[in-house]
Design a protein around this nucleic acid. Structure first.
Lengths: 105, 105
DNA sequence: ATCGTTAATCGTAAATATACGATAGATGGA
DNA sequence: TCCATCTATCGTATATTTACGATTAACGAT
């Protein structure tokens, strides 16, 4: 069988897992780093810095956006992608909380 | 096409992505929390606390073990699973480093 | 109004992940 | 020795992810 049982877990663990999933591909980690270095960054700029096609990069951006780690503002024919600091901060603190619980680091 | 391009990214980003992937299912997050509460914990104990079959739990344990977040010591017919504090600490500090880079939290 | 640029979405293919039951292998006890 | 217990692995089915090219849609400029 293969319909997911994810929903049977608690809300916060599901949310943490979703954030972790957003970070679970090196392209998406690199995209976050790229967005950090450039304040005003469109999809095409990112495509040039990755070994992936435009459509694939667009999919990765969509995943990061869907969990709120980045935002995309429409700017004419372009889209300006930015880091979402508030949500990253929240993600960081929840991940820290998990690690502190789990290993008392 | 669909053979992965992950290897074309840098080592550290790949490692971070692998750790994040290990955390990308709520069952695995819950397993980490369960192992924290119980010092000496066998697979069967975990199965009872999750809405999943024994074989599925075994697979999740294998994934956590493969990135080094937990260890499994054979103890007679049982296997004693434990948190790997050293590796969790390393994971925590690398994830922190990423977040600090990216959002200056 | 048409053209070029930009990015999302569609359609598709292949790989990987999630889940289960059944089986196999290893151990300890009767 | 034989049995019960425990867990990994096998085989399998379905869902999701990764990746691409082609197309669509939206905009600005000519």
């Amino acid at each position: 069988m293969a319909f997911s049982k994810k929903e049977e877990f608690n809300r916060n663990d599901i949310w943490l897992a979703d954030v972790a999933k957003a970070l679970s591909h090196p392209a998406r980690i690199k995209i976050l780093k790229i967005l950090t270095g450039m304040n005003d960054c469109m999809c095409g700029d990112i495509v040039e810095l990755l070994p992936l096609s435009q459509s694939t990069v667009s999919q990765h951006l969509k995943e990061l956006k869907s969990v709120g780690l980045i935002t995309g503002k429409i700017d004419g024919p372009k889209v300006c992608y930015c880091i979402n600091k508030a949500n990253l901060q929240k993600a960081k603190s929840e991940i820290d909380k998990l690690f502190n619980q789990v290993c008392a680091c």
